[in-house]
Design a protein around this nucleic acid. Structure first.
Length: 217
DNA sequence: TTGTGTTTTACGACCTCC
DNA sequence: GGAGGTCGTAAAACACAA
């Protein structure tokens, strides 16, 4: 077999053109080699093993990367015609161009996912902020409601005290004793009991609740 | 200098489409 | 069935703090 000889020649070539021959790969159209297991060749470079050194990975040059980036910017997919053209222009193996595009697509996808994640996180944070604000608003409103109820209760008690000295309002005092809150009055379905809820007000005299209450505070 | 984390290059396995 | 895609990962290259 002249395999070793070929390897040595290829290694020599790869050393002569390090920017071009980063790795010896099967050329397109050549007989497809059997699937290789992953090479565990960490020591190849360090040991200076000539038969392995041309397998070492080389970074693409800036120019190559720029060209590939431009091409990727135009179109993320790589048809075989474009792949061959790029490979020829850049002095790379078509397989390298294909691999570069695969990796570039993966990076692009990761970046896109990261951006989407950040967007979702921001909107989640905003919703949390809104929730927090609404909860504190609710708390304030509950406090206001509580104060209002206390105030109403206090007024009711004052009314009650006032009415106990007033003979004309005995019916109201009875109702007030049954409930602590105006809104809780039980009135008959026909509304007849409303007659007993209010102090007598002169005919044709308009008076709202506040005015009415102020008379007795 | 060296240990360690990140990025880049390359590959195998598997999947889809024509 | 082959070409080309994704996904997961190995390993080289690189960056950088200690």
């Amino acid at each position: 077999m002249n395999h070793t000889m070929d390897d040595q020649n290829l290694a020599f070539i790869s050393q002569l053109y390090p920017d071009v021959y980063t790795q010896i790969l099967p050329q397109q159209g050549a007989v497809k080699p059997p699937k290789r297991r992953r090479k565990k060749s960490k020591g190849a470079v360090a040991t200076g093993d000539v038969s392995n050194c041309f397998f070492r990975k080389r970074k693409l040059t800036d120019e190559q990367v720029n060209m590939l980036e431009m091409s990727f910017g135009d179109e993320h997919k790589l048809e075989s015609e474009r792949k061959d053209r790029l490979a020829a222009e850049l002095g790379l193996d078509p397989r390298q161009v294909a691999v570069w595009f695969q990796n570039r697509r993966a990076r692009w996808k990761n970046k896109r996912l990261e951006e989407e994640y950040n967007k979702l996180k921001n909107s989640h944070d905003n919703v949390l902020g809104d929730k927090c604000r609404l909860e504190s608003e609710l708390l304030q409103l509950k406090e206001q409601l509580y104060d209002a109820e206390r105030e109403i209760q206090r007024l009711a008690e004052r009314v009650e005290r006032g009415s106990s000295n007033s003979p004309i309002s005995s019916s109201v005092s009875v109702e007030a004793n049954e409930t602590a809150f105006f809104g809780d009055y039980n009135v008959g379905d026909d509304g007849d009991d409303y007659d007993n809820l209010f102090y007598p007000v002169p005919e044709n005299t308009y008076m709202d609740g506040v005015e009415w209450a102020s008379l007795y505070i």
